[in-house]
Design a protein around this nucleic acid. Structure first.
Lengths: 174, 174
DNA sequence: TGTGAAAATTTCAAATG
DNA sequence: CATTTGAAATTTTCACA
């Protein structure tokens, strides 16, 4: 858990490949990266100990499990006090429809990603589990038409972090 | 890819366990579920062929990769035509800061989940990659204070799908 | 679906540069 | 001192009962 964990090109390539397919064998990983399998094992163990790798997840299709409709619920929790938000968070996390929960800046404090069987199930969820609660002041429901995954998470480059108003021009695309 | 894939209790338990730890061995899985390892292998292969299991993901900590700040960008794409949104989607997906992209109902068409090095990097990203684009009419930025994972995705029960206004009472919590 | 054996992989201790 | 080698332990995988 040390905060300074130096990642060399081998680590980065391992992370890139494993984010593409987490079940790649150490043997294949080693061949792709150009080191021995045991070195891959060491590196992955170090990345795990260092907190870079948090775990291995199974990606499932909610639609195939009878949840073809996904939505994002923006929820405003009224008196935003610890005594209320603690139970609220735990209750939302325990809902079988919940996939993820975010605490955000802005007027809508929480965002809940849910997967449901259909519009009726969504209505029921919003009315019974959110609107009906005293601590919930407002719920805004938006359906997810489509979702795209993006590339692997890689270390931020120096250029990404530079301020937009200093350094080289802001919108100079010529 | 057949649409009707019957999932028995063994399948469900395998899905539940694998969503908890996708690297569980078939041997351990078999012991936990109470069937032979080869049966687990068969079931997982069937679930994969059936499209229930989409893949295996590595969960990494963006903060450990120099991206301690995450945000959600609500983006309104102005003339919402195919010729514009195709390139927009692909450009956003290719950004190293992007983690996920959603097409939503509502006034803000797209939601982009990003991970950046800090406020300066976020400002630069919003100004240069979104606001500066002709097709982007509006961007609203909300920071993610915290994120919680929820339980595994499991099949929707009949009760979940029932309409809220028919059947047994709506808010009868007595 | 289970059994058991073969193939492949993971994992580790000792050797290497 | 990280990396590789090579072999042992474990796991995956498959043919057949």
């Amino acid at each position: 858990m040390s905060d300074s964990l130096v990642l060399d090109p081998v680590d980065l390539e391992i992370l890139r490949l494993l984010q593409n397919d987490a079940r790649m064998t150490y043997r294949d990983l080693a061949a792709a990266v150009g080191v021995a399998a045991s070195t891959c094992l060491d590196r992955v163990a170090r990345l795990r100990r260092g907190g870079v790798i948090l775990g291995y997840e199974l990606r499932v299709d909610p639609a195939r499990l009878g949840r073809p409709l996904e939505a994002l619920l923006s929820v405003q929790v009224r008196p935003h006090r610890k005594e209320l938000i603690g139970p609220f968070v735990e209750r939302v996390r325990a809902l079988p429809q919940s996939r993820a929960l975010f605490h955000l800046t802005g007027p809508d404090d929480y965002l809940v990603h849910v997967a449901v069987a259909g519009a009726a199930g969504l209505q029921r969820l919003v009315l019974e589990e959110f609107t009906a609660r005293r601590e919930v002041a407002r719920v805004e429901t938006r359906l997810i038409f489509q979702r795209w995954e993006c590339g692997p998470v890689l270390p931020a480059s120096a250029a990404e972090s530079r301020s937009a108003v200093e350094g080289d021009g802001v919108v100079a695309d010529g």
